[in-house]
Amino acid sequence: MPAPAPKPSLRAIAWVFLAIGMQSFGGGMSAWIRREVVHRRAWMGEREFVGGLALAQIAPGANGVNLAVFVGTTLRGPAGALAALIGMLLVPVIAVLAMGALFTEIRDIPGVEPVMTGIGAAAIGMNVANGVRMMRKNITGLWPYCLLAAIAAAIGLAGLPLVAVLIAAIPLGLWGARP
């Protein structure tokens, strides 16, 4: 059995997720989490992270929040999950509620709409880049690439319902990776 990697402290987990919560304008939560947890700090391996991402996507609820709970739980159990969850949501919750109380007609402020469109478009690009990086680290062989492209096209282009695509795709993925 390999020696367990040194586990980050609860304070370190809370701090990293606080930073993610403060910076993640336009969404892109899973890209931020992977960048901080896997790419910069190596708290978790690529394969373990992608497995957690799949769990976060397949389980009901908001994907980014689910992923924070997965990472926190894996690193430090229940306390780690709370540290990640509260760390990530603290600043955004205060920010939305303050804005909700201050602005009633935020869309009418000149410039807000185009700036948000630009940030949103860049955040989609961040997700794409994260997808490409994960693909390079995790996907080998023709079959997984075909499956990946088919899933992206079925939902993104053809607009097929997600649950139906998952029911078809998960067995195909497992079949492709069979030992």
Binding site: V50, G51, G131, M135, Y145, L147, L148, I151, G156, W175
Partner: peptide
Amino acid sequence: ERGLAPVSIGLIFASA
């Protein structure tokens, strides 16, 4: 984990 990798990464591209 290996089997779900193309699914979860495919979903990232699908939502983009």
